Computed example of a mutant assay.
Amino acid sequence: MSDKQPEKPLRKAKLSDVSFVLASVALAADETFGDNPDFAAAEKRRYTPAYLRSLIAANPAYVMISENADGIRTGFMIAVPDQGVLISCWSYLLPEHRKGTHAVRAKRSFLNFWNNGRFHKVAAFTRPQNVTARTLMEHCGYSEKTLLEKHMFGEDFYLFECPLNKIIAGYDPMPSTGRIRDLKLRLRAALS
């Protein structure tokens, strides 16, 4: 794991951020998939405290926290390694922080952080009706690759990719969790 730090407005997550991320995932799932309650519920179940703790333990940069100039948490990004590709699972700003260039700066900081590392690209998905996300990704260097019809829970998604310069040998494995490991992480979180 690298000691490299993301540029402002992002920072690597801490175990103490798990409750904020969980609450924010619930907001994001309801906002993004409110018209598909099964999808929203599945996203809320997928991001458990144990799963988030395992991501942060594997590499705190897999969960990044967006902050404003006053250090107030404004959103989050979750990414996971998968067969040499970094999958951007969520990029979400709380509604009250969506004015101005904060989203662009956060997305660029995310890409700059992961560039020149162990991944050759970032992949992300967005629904066709999310014009704002599609425009943001294109503005930050992602390119639309294809429309995946009925891809997840019967919903269409666009696949976007952004190339990265891979200079470090090897690939990150998918983080895993187990009961004993999670108990240790919970204890560590309680003591921090």
Rank of each mutant, 00 (worst) to 15 (best):
L15R: 02
L15S: 07
S16G: 04
S16W: 01
S16E: 13
S16T: 10
D17H: 11
D17K: 04
D17F: 14
D17Y: 08
D17R: 05
D17A: 06
V18T: 11
V18A: 02
V18I: 15
V18M: 08
V18C: 07
V18W: 03
S19G: 09
S19T: 02
S19C: 07
F20H: 15
F20K: 09
V21F: 01
V21S: 04
V21P: 03
V21Q: 06
L22M: 15
L22N: 10
L22S: 03
L22W: 10
L22Y: 15
L22C: 04
S24R: 10
S24G: 15
V25A: 02
V25T: 05
V25Y: 06
V25L: 15
V25G: 03
V25E: 05
A26S: 13
A26M: 11
A26E: 15
A26N: 15
A26P: 02
A26D: 04
L27Y: 00
L27D: 12
L27M: 14
L27H: 13
L27Q: 11
L27K: 11
L27P: 05
A28L: 12
A28E: 12
A28I: 10
A29W: 10
A29T: 10
A29S: 14
A29E: 10
D30W: 14
D30M: 14
D30T: 13
T32A: 15
F33S: 12
F33A: 14
F33G: 06
F33I: 01
F33N: 12
F33V: 05
F33R: 12
G34C: 05
G34M: 06
G34F: 04
D35W: 07
D35M: 04
D35H: 14
N36I: 02
N36D: 04
N36W: 03
P37D: 13
P37G: 08
P37L: 03
P37A: 15
D38L: 01
D38F: 00
D38G: 01
D38A: 05
D38P: 00
F39T: 07
F39E: 05
A40C: 09
A40Q: 08
A42T: 07
A42R: 11
A42V: 00
A42W: 07
A42D: 12
A42E: 15
A42K: 06
E43W: 12
E43K: 12
E43Q: 13
E43N: 03
E43R: 12
K44E: 05
K44Y: 07
K44I: 06
K44R: 07
K44F: 11
R45T: 07
R45C: 00
R45F: 01
R45Y: 13
R46A: 07
R46M: 13
R46K: 13
Y47H: 13
Y47A: 10
Y47D: 01
Y47W: 15
Y47E: 05
Y47V: 04
T48N: 05
T48V: 01
T48Y: 02
P49R: 14
P49N: 09
P49M: 12
A50F: 03
A50L: 01
A50K: 13
